[in-house]
């Protein structure tokens, strides 16, 4: 079986690019200072396809509609372009998929999410300013025993 997956949200991509695994231990790639994915890496594209799904075929047959036009067996295929960045440093290279990071299908945080973050931030700062007895106690403890 495959080892546990290390997933991370796409907003952390630029930081994550600096890390890689050797014997399942995280190490730094030691990339040059001011490394920029967009500037230092070459862009590649890969064309894949997305055909009429099973769900759509079922819905169409239930509603008595004609199968999707064209294609074989009522399939209609659309191309989907995936973007990749190939970074070379020294004699090593690595690829980063940037489909949702740049280009047409870029993910942007929704307005709702940004509002939530904006609401959350002042609350945090207040908490830090006022202090908390429990937190102070924990701080006092960490003077003797480090967090690690």
């Amino acid at each position: 079986m495959a080892p546990p997956e290390k997933t991370f949200p796409i907003s952390e991509l630029e930081n994550r690019v600096h890390l890689y695994d050797v014997d399942y231990k995280e190490k730094s790639r030691k990339l040059p200072k001011g490394f920029d994915l967009k500037r230092d890496c070459e862009l590649y594209e890969l064309v894949q396809y997305s055909c009429t799904t099973q769900e759509e075929i079922e819905q169409r047959s239930l509603l008595g509609l004609k199968p999707a036009r064209g294609g074989k067996g009522g399939w209609e295929c659309y191309s989907f372009v995936r973007l990749f960045r190939r970074c070379k440093y020294g004699n090593q290279e690595f690829n980063v998929e940037t489909t949702a990071w740049e280009g047409r299908h870029t993910w942007k945080p929704s307005s709702r999410l940004l509002e939530e973050q904006a609401l959350a931030q002042p609350a945090q700062s207040e908490f830090a300013a006022n202090g908390n007895s429990e937190r102070a106690f924990a701080k006092y403890g960490s003077y003797f025993w480090s967090g690690k």
């Binding site: 994550r16 890689y20 014997d23 399942y24 307005s111």
Partner: peptide, 14 residues
């Protein structure tokens, strides 16, 4: 508005 959940990425193990 065209909004969707934040996509996740994965680093491929050795």
């Amino acid at each position: 508005e065209e909004e969707w959940d934040e996509p996740e990425m994965i680093q491929i193990p050795e």
